[in-house]
């Protein structure tokens, strides 16, 4: 349990120490509003939870792809935080086709012309689209 908490703390530090703080309105002593750049604690926690959730989800999908249950397209879609509907629009394809291409057996048979649409929409190279990173 403690390890998890420490990990969460590390993630919070990691994602909020990027040197690009946001501005927050704050009351000063004179009752005037000024801008400050310290993120509130609650924001860090909730942001870390959502990002950790996204990462865990991505990792799960990566393993599923390596195990041959999902197509690499599914991984790259998730990496770009897209859903099939949005990807279909970006690639100029019907949603049901995109959903079908998430199956590995269908994906391996795709023509290069179809794959090119995905590489453009997802901004990856053809090689990247066909594989997932090993770690």
């Amino acid at each position: 349990m403690k390890d998890q908490k420490e990990l969460a703390m590390e993630l919070e530090d990691e994602i909020f120490n990027d040197g690009l703080p946001k501005a927050y309105y704050k009351h000063n002593e004179n009752g005037q509003y000024v801008l400050e750049t310290n993120a509130p604690w609650a924001e860090k926690v909730s942001c870390a939870l959502i990002i950790a959730g996204n990462r865990a989800n991505l990792e799960e999908i990566r393993k599923a792809v390596l195990a041959g249950q999902k197509s690499p397209l599914c991984y790259h879609m998730e990496l770009r935080q897209l859903d099939p509907g949005m990807l279909a629009k970006a690639a100029g394809m019907a949603v049901f086709r995109v959903k079908r291409h998430l199956r590995p057996d269908v994906f391996t048979k795709l023509k290069p012309s179809v794959l090119n649409r995905y590489t453009k929409a997802l901004r990856v190279t053809l090689e990247e689209l066909k594989t997932v990173p090993n770690s």
Binding site: K22, A23, Y25, A39, P40, E43, S46
Partner: peptide, 20 residues
Amino acid sequence: LANIVRMQEEVGTGGAGFRF
């Protein structure tokens, strides 16, 4: 709940969901 808090604090609201 985290999503609500994120929408309230994170996405450029200036704190407390634009209330400040």
